[in-house]
Nucleic acid binder design. Structure first.
Lengths: 360, 360
DNA sequence: CTGAAAGCGCTTACAG
DNA sequence: CTGAAAGCGCTTACAG
């Protein structure tokens, strides 16, 4: 088998010009129906696969997008990657990954590497506490609606609000919110939402894990059992990772969930449905977020270059804040376990199984 | 600012030919020292960034690799992605991601898409129960040393052996191994290793979660507490995901870890160091695996095309099976808690903190 | 509706 | 050591 067929092979085989073949394949220039059909047939017959390199060189578009996360080791990366890959792929784009391993300045280097590699645009999920400078190339930022320059994001604040309301409805009046970094817009929005829900209706205190670890060492106990003794009946973590830490610390300390206290998380990370009790959490609509990010990016690309303030996509107006979905599982129940047996919330609105998720 | 400078701009600015500029930049053709220096200087001055598209078109190499996992939603994906991205990037290659969402036949489609996108080669972590057909392009398979066609993998069997020995040393004589899919080579190797360790020294029974879920529904309790009553003192899961499920189910059932039983996992997934008690696990050397996979791939690419049986890389001979690292944390302790206080193993050989891993 | 021609930016023999 | 020329595969005005 010779090397891959190209336009010229098709043209020769049919005695037409490559321009016509190109037109027929792209459907751009006018080509007669019959010729078009014949060309496409011959193309298929020869197993023609267009050369992206050739196309890229002549059009100046690589049809490749970059995806940059501060740290692709983060458990949320799979969700982003999957959604972005899917949306990009639907739109005819490939996705190149970039990693900065959590390092702040490596973030810009990662972005630049992808640009040098010819990415037409970049989707970036910035590290907490950073924002993205103009890189002279289309960018879609996924961070938080409250972040300046944000393109699209989940409505974290409203997610927090709903989570807070969920806990209030269960009868909780004293919640401890568990956060990690106080410079994270996402976390702050979630926390603000939870607090807003509790305002005037109960007490909400806040624990920053990051600070505790700074003074007590990393991996230190969070002292949650003590809080329970002080009357806290619910723990609302801003990430399932911290919720998991809370659940296991409480269980280890002999606190029963959800009989004694409720625990909730955010993000519906992989283990949320797998642990016992399964974890009530709040999920981003990644598909939708990815779709919008990609659509925005492509629109910028098609307009040729960085988007200026005036060229916002009308279609995206007011849509940059995507509702989150509350997923109620077993870890949150009526306060103090006074509910009748069988009354405990255990709605599985999301498959609670590990069997679908273990490919290797 | 005009569009990016190219070789021709540099050539013009210096009154030399583009061929010479190209030679100087690539260091290939002979170019006088002074001219070379002048050219590189001018290139820097003009902010020259080579066009990958142009290079790709003329050399037929895109310098892009594809990374295909059956399901990039899997919690192991971040480790793979990070390591592969790093190794590839060091070697001057970009990484395009492909996803088949766990679907078997979508796996080949994902591979083909990446090839059509021009990937010079593909790293694939195949879904359990599948193998990779010849795709007429360099491939590096990361699965299990026992998989035919495997390029590089962790030594899962020996990992299992060491894990089994670890439990034996702690005094355990009755272990329940927790697996998911019986058609996974990786899992079978790990299980075989654990069993080998226990052979003649204790009892090892085997639980397949997949089968339990098929008959009792997904997310069903695994009945681990019952096993404890039957005398099982250790649970060795073949993945941290299942270990987590075991830990929480046991804790919820009032079984104390590691006082009553030990639990161990595999893969050192993100939560292993975060939960309480932190999880003893067995980690793959992803950096090394990625390095070898990438080196093999590039060597195949440089030899131009699919690797035939005779052209094995001498450097890689016998290195395709990479040792795993046992990470002892709190979840595994001396059997029956008979140890003196303070005698409990709680060596943190791996940072047990969530604070480094929450970028958003 | 169809085709000849130029050009995208680079590399690579081949001359000089 | 240096350069003129052809070519990688495609697209895009522009003629016909």
């Amino acid at each position: 088998m010779a090397s891959r067929a190209n336009l010229s092979d098709i043209a020769k085989a049919l005695g037409v010009s490559v321009a016509t073949v190109s037109n027929a394949m792209s459907g751009k220039g006018r080509v007669s129906k019959e010729l078009g059909r014949a060309i496409r047939e011959k193309a298929k017959e020869l197993g023609y696969v267009p050369s992206l390199a050739g196309r890229a060189l002549s059009t100046g578009r690589s049809h490749v997008l970059g995806l940059v996360l501060a740290d692709i080791g983060h458990p949320l990366f799979p969700q982003f990657a999957q959604a972005i890959e899917h949306a990009a792929s639907e739109a005819g784009y490939g996705v190149l990954i970039g990693d900065s391993r959590g390092d702040i300045e490596a973030q810009s280097r990662a972005i630049n590497r992808l640009i040098e590699r010819g990415a037409d645009g970049i989707v970036v999920v910035p590290r907490h506490g950073t924002c993205i400078a103009d890189i002279g190339r289309p960018v879609a930022v996924i961070d938080s609606p409250s972040t300046p320059g944000n393109t699209v994001a989940a409505d974290h604040r409203n997610g927090g609000l709903e989570m807070g309301r969920h806990l209030l409805e269960l009868g909780h009046r004293s919640v401890a919110i568990i956060g990690l970094h106080s410079d994270s817009n996402v976390q702050n929005d979630r926390i603000a939402g939870i607090r807003e829900a509790f305002a005037g209706k109960g007490e909400a205190r806040l624990i920053w894990i990051g600070e505790m670890e700074r003074s007590h060492g990393s991996g230190c106990p969070l002292g949650l059992v003590g809080l329970v003794e002080e009357g806290v009946t619910a723990f609302a973590a801003v990430s399932d990772l911290h919720a998991l830490r809370a659940i296991t610390e409480l269980q280890q300390g002999g606190v029963s969930i959800p009989d004694d206290v409720s625990v909730t998380g955010f993000d519906d990370l992989i283990w949320a449905g797998v642990i016992a009790p399964s974890l009530t959490t709040m999920r981003m609509d990644m598909e939708r977020i990815a779709e919008i990010a990609i659509a925005d990016l492509i629109s910028q690309i098609d307009q040729g270059g960085a988007r200026d303030a005036s060229s916002d996509l009308p279609a995206l107006k007011g849509q940059s804040s995507i509702p989150m979905e509350l997923i109620i599982r077993q870890s949150s129940g009526p306060v103090l376990g006074r509910a009748a047996p069988g009354d405990r919330t255990s709605v599985h609105r999301w498959p609670a199984s590990s069997s679908a998720t273990d490919p290797v």
